[in-house]
Amino acid sequence: MTAPILKVEHLSMRFGGLLAVNDLSFEARRGEITALIGPNGAGKTTVFNCITGFYKPTEGMLTLSHDDGKSFLLERLPDYMINRKARVARTFQNIRLFQGMTVLENLLVAQHTPLMIASGWTVLGVLGVKSYKLREQAAVDKAIAWLERIGLVDRADDPAGDLPYGDQRRLEIARAMCTDPVLLCLDEPAAGLNPRESLELNALLRAIRDDYETSVLLIEHDMSVVMQISDHVVVLDYGIKISDGTPDDIRNDPKVIAAYLGVEDEEVAEVEAEVGA
């Protein structure tokens, strides 16, 4: 039993009169892929935005622990510090690449913090110091290694906005990985992918979990992805956790089925067939 990398306790988020997330508690365990699922409007993205600092939660505590025992209260960190210090990276539901910059530049922007230090907060960089040049070359090498991994090395010098949709999704994941995160949060990584791309994504996510000591938290609608790769699933509905367990537990939980399908019997059967697949 590994210690949880992320512990969400009593998280609530209120927008005016709307309680988007209500007293949510769950854990994401180290070295696992945790999936956050639920019907549209269940508050999944809101949870993500709280974890990654874009929203300040109304209530609750978000604790992130590193291997070495350091822990961070994410709700108290400014948004950029969540990536820089707590080392949580994320992708976005509607891809947010730097479209007018090349693929390679995108991956170098992700290595901003170490490069900034190496450039002596710009001073040494302007003077053209050699140690910075070496460090920059290392950053380029790391970026190229990721591009090889996701099969985009030939397009390194093309603008990111010119890539097809599926490639953009993978590039966004690679960009997040270039920040060396301990927790990678993916907001619907399989949305808009065709079945082949979806399979490639599964392989990539498993590799991230196994090869890089990065735990993964993902929101996903595509049940085939969720069921095949996640180690642990949390189900939300109307901002409340309705189920929490292994994919098998979830598949058979009547509350989950009801939440997804309302109460119509034939639809239940349909989804049972889909989930069972």
């Binding site: 990654t52 950029y80 510090m81 910059m101 530049e105 290595q111 901003h112």
Partner: peptide
Amino acid sequence: LPVGRAWEALREDEIACRSLGIN
């Protein structure tokens, strides 16, 4: 330099910049 790339990244997408640890 990283600072210049961060400027251009900021022009492209400020929210993505914050998610990558850029102040």
